[in-house]
């Protein structure tokens, strides 16, 4: 569905193409969000609020706003959906879901349906690889992308029953992370079970967390802090510190 490089800009030079003068090294960031039925009500509201607030902060961040590119993938509502900003992309639209952070507007999500987590993670890997190819063709460099998977449940099939298909991507994810193709964050929220958390641990051995409640605001701030660390060229230790502070949900100075 997204095998051909989607056009990201007007094909010829044009002054209204606001990315034309931006040669900054890019940082693709994918939010891979669970919006299945169990997220209904307060949780999905909290997620929407946090996305709006994070977007405002991102727009104001002089360093990140012209480097980070955001794509959103949701899994719930019987399907996996990629968003280009606030707009859901239909299969076959052939558009990249990545939007420069300064122009990003978040979708307003509703919660419903099943948890097609495996397919969502596969799509996340796919769009990251496609965007890299596209950026290389444009002569644009990129930092190591970040994928953030957030869920409160277990992977299911289209009928809502638990499925073991997630196991097929574990070796793929391990190899991709070993080759430093992206950093994967896998965050369990709400009442995620130990079984659900075991899936996230298998996906992201370094950056997984099981959190009380729905601390989406802190989660998105952690993604920004990690993006800033990546821009600075920090070593893995710095990312681990940032993640540790987030996971323990304590103020920085208590860490």
């Amino acid at each position: 569905m997204m095998n051909e490089p989607p056009p990201t800009a007007v094909p010829q030079y044009a002054d209204f193409d606001f990315e034309l003068d931006n040669n900054a090294q890019r940082l693709p960031l994918v939010l891979c969000l669970d919006n299945s039925r169990s997220m209904e009500g307060r949780p999905v509201q909290a997620l929407n609020e946090a996305l709006r607030e994070w977007t405002r902060e991102l727009h104001d961040d002089v360093s990140l706003s012209y480097s980070v590119e955001v794509a959103v993938i949701t899994f719930g509502d019987q399907s996996v959906t990629a968003y280009r900003g606030a707009e859901p992309l239909h299969p076959g639209m052939n558009l990249s879901p990545f939007v420069p952070a300064h122009a990003f507007t978040p979708p307003t999500l509703a919660a419903n349906g099943v948890t097609l987590m495996t397919e969502a993670v596969e799509l996340a890997m796919h769009i990251v690889a496609a965007r890299k190819t596209e950026l290389r063709k444009l002569g644009l460099q990129y930092y190591r992308p970040q994928i953030c998977l957030v869920t409160d449940g277990l992977p299911t099939d289209g009928t809502g029953h638990y499925t073991t298909t997630w196991q097929r991507i574990v070796p793929v994810l391990a190899e991709e992370q070993r080759a430093r193709r992206f950093r994967l964050y896998a965050i369990g929220v709400g009442g995620i079970t130990d079984r659900g958390q075991a899936v996230l641990r298998a996906f992201a051995p370094t950056y997984n967390a099981q959190l009380q409640g729905f601390p989406f605001r802190e989660l998105l701030q952690m993604m920004s802090a990690s993006a800033a660390a990546e821009q600075k060229g920090e070593g893995e230790e710095a990312f681990e510190k940032i993640f540790h502070q987030f996971r323990t949900q304590r103020p920085a100075w208590e860490a």
């Binding site: 030079y13 002054d15 707009e87 558009l95 939007v99």
Partner: peptide
Amino acid sequence: GGQDLFNPPPPRPPAPSAPAPPPP
């Protein structure tokens, strides 16, 4: 056909078909 790097862009042309990229 490039950009005026120091001045705001001129008005945008009519929106193309399909979803347009987000406006400035």
